[in-house]
Design a protein around this nucleic acid. Sequence first.
DNA 1: TTTTTACGGATTGTGTACAAGTTTTTTGAG
DNA 2: CTCAAAAAACTTGTACACAATCCGTAAAAA
Lengths: 236, 236
Amino acid sequence: MSEPRQPAAKLIYERLETMIAEGHFKDGERLDETMLAQEFGVSRTPLREALRQLTANGLTETFPNRGTFVRRPDFVRIVEMFEVMAEMEAWCARLAATRATAAQLLLLRHAASRCEAALQENDSRAYYAHNETFHRLIYEASGNGFLAEETSAMQGRLKAFRQAQLFVPDRLARSMQEHRMILKALEAQDAPAVERLVRDHVRIQSTTYQEFRAPDDLAEGAAWFDKAASRKASTV
Amino acid sequence: MSEPRQPAAKLIYERLETMIAEGHFKDGERLDETMLAQEFGVSRTPLREALRQLTANGLTETFPNRGTFVRRPDFVRIVEMFEVMAEMEAWCARLAATRATAAQLLLLRHAASRCEAALQENDSRAYYAHNETFHRLIYEASGNGFLAEETSAMQGRLKAFRQAQLFVPDRLARSMQEHRMILKALEAQDAPAVERLVRDHVRIQSTTYQEFRAPDDLAEGAAWFDKAASRKASTV
DNA sequence: TTTTTACGGATTGTGTACAAGTTTTTTGAG
DNA sequence: CTCAAAAAACTTGTACACAATCCGTAAAAA
């Protein structure tokens, strides 16, 4: 019943992802393979894989023979990310409104009731997990397999940046209320309503993140633009 | 003036990507690291990096300690991919209609005239390159940096599957005409028109691909679904 | 003084060997 | 003959060593 042992590379990827999301690195900071390998107690091989994965997801930038550098998202970028996420999910939801099968609606209701139960018990972790299922079911109900995969991948990429909003007061209760409305609109096959509801439901996450981290990032935002400008000049 | 030598891993990635797009592998076929390393004349280290990159882009699937398996897209998936691409580009374009700066419009006109020149000389390669610039400029004009990057990345991922449509007769001339209309609508800041024009402009690429490869893929499509079903059963 | 070039140190890219895990074959009992 | 368990063969995951490349510094030339 225990999980099959995960490769070290994946674990390291997740740790680095969290560290970047939580701001443990400065923007533009170089991630030294040798040093990090020592810190994590592994060789450079799995660590390099993790770095490449980070770059694939846009969290770092890699220059051949020069190394990989963190791209710490400022608050503008965070908003942009959730904006894109909201649009993708809204598109999924609009398609799902007319394409979802009875079985898929059943699964959605089930996931929603699981969220409800978690809310009753005030179990943030459980709510978070079932919330993820609820959203993923909508992606799949869109009927476009590729879109569903891409949206799911995007959700995974933003997960690290969404952790903070768990602790925003009353967010869970409000989220649940939004889920109820989304489900209702889906059952009514009201595509425009579903699209709007889901877009707002996802978008709000960026505003909570902003509230949570803005003071920090506003200060660092200016430095970021300077660095980005000089970096651009040196690489072009 | 010569290009800085590319790492072997990147070159191998591109070759494998093309091979998958061109159908050199069966769907579900395992990509043997040792064997491929021998064929490409490199060690397993850079080859593994290429495989991981393929998986990150959804062209293959990797199971820990079991290997990576190709996910050859059937024609349904191809259509889905261009559908998503069309929607992303359309969104960029709609935003660009109201947000593009004068400088960005100038660059767009420049890229369009480059396309025009390439068309006059019947230089498909050049047209293809300037076409890419034209589209990328629209992404950037959206004003959402993250969206621009993601759309650009998606374009890169679909590039391998778009090669075929270069050879569809009159496609270049029609594409150019579409560019002209898009540019005109952008200058007029007519967001709804731009959105619609770009969506159709991108969408049509999937239909040409479909015409080009459908006979093949229709036959293999059935086998694909069978395999996918059995694979699902074995991994769950 | 300013620019160019050569060198030294450090870091990434790749090859190879071994460890860990998976699949297939073999072997034995029922 | 069938099925289960064990072992052999094979494949991926990781460690480590060396090669290729880049960066900074300092010396030399303009």
